[in-house]
């Protein structure tokens, strides 16, 4: 399918979600996947700064722990940190370059282990402030074009809008409240992945897949469901378990 057609579909999908009662983590995860498909990159991650100005992964194009760890590595170093600190786009960074590896030693090692050779990062912008970054990772060395980057920045802006649009349980309309709530939701999700993985004797990745599938098919907000599970007010036996080693 040509990109323009696909883009139209994604636009409609995004507009639909944003006007609906959507779950921010689930939305950003799907946005990451769309971004990965449209830009033909290997992985996409969306990071938000917490109160210490430390970047935290809020969503990624795939939830496998190995990828999340690579993003987690970026709390201290990597293209997303540079992008967040400067507020500027960082494009087509060659991760195999020796000077890059010297600048971000831990990140470079982990990126290499994942097979990523090129990275780009775009700022999540909010009225002159940078609140996070979107990272794009490629396993092939083809540079992103100017039109790719325009599209990527538009998708990064959609991510910012979604974070500010979410309806929290407290109906907080405050920007800072929204950012903080999104970060908290992400942590709840990680805690619940662990609870389910242990109850079902499966991996955290498979636990997440089963949880998300259940939430989607029962029109549950992923975060609300996760909170209920963490609070012990939801019987997790209702969720069909993922088969071991299953991938989305």
């Amino acid at each position: 399918m040509i990109r323009e057609q696909r883009l139209t579909e994604v636009f409609v999908e995004v507009a639909d979600s944003l006007t609906d009662d959507f779950d921010v983590i689930d939305f950003l995860q799907q946005l990451s996947v769309r971004c990965m498909e449209l830009l033909n990159v290997a992985a996409v991650g969306i990071m938000l700064a917490d109160s210490n100005s430390t970047l935290q992964t809020i969503a990624a194009s795939d939830e496998h722990t190995r990828l999340l760890e690579l993003f987690a590595q970026q709390h201290a170093q990597g293209p997303c940190v540079d992008c967040y600190n400067s507020g500027n786009v960082r494009t087509n960074i060659n991760l195999t370059d020796r000077t890059v590896a010297a600048k971000w030693p831990q990140f470079a090692v982990q990126a290499e282990g994942t097979g990523f050779v090129v990275a780009s990062a775009l700022p999540l912008r909010l009225r002159g402030r940078t609140i996070g970054a979107m990272g794009l990772f490629q396993t092939d060395p083809d540079p992103l074009t100017a039109s790719d980057l325009t599209l990527a920045q538009a998708l990064a802006d959609v991510a910012t809008i979604a974070i500010l649009q979410q309806r929290t349980l407290a109906h907080s309309e405050l920007e800072r409240g929204q950012l903080q709530y999104a970060l908290t939701s992400r942590i709840v999700l990680e805690q619940v992945k662990g609870i389910l993985a242990e109850r079902w004797n499966t991996s955290v990745d498979d636990a997440f897949t089963a949880l998300r599938r259940y939430a989607r098919s029962h029109s549950y907000q992923l975060t609300s469901l996760a909170r209920e599970i963490a609070d012990g007010t939801f019987d997790t036996n209702q969720i069909p378990r993922a088969a071991n080693g299953e991938r989305k």
Binding site: T65, A72, E190, V192, K193, G194, I195, L196, A197, E198
Partner: peptide
Amino acid sequence: AVVHQATGMVSA
């Protein structure tokens, strides 16, 4: 993330 996941696992 892995610390939060482990917290959930130990709790279960």
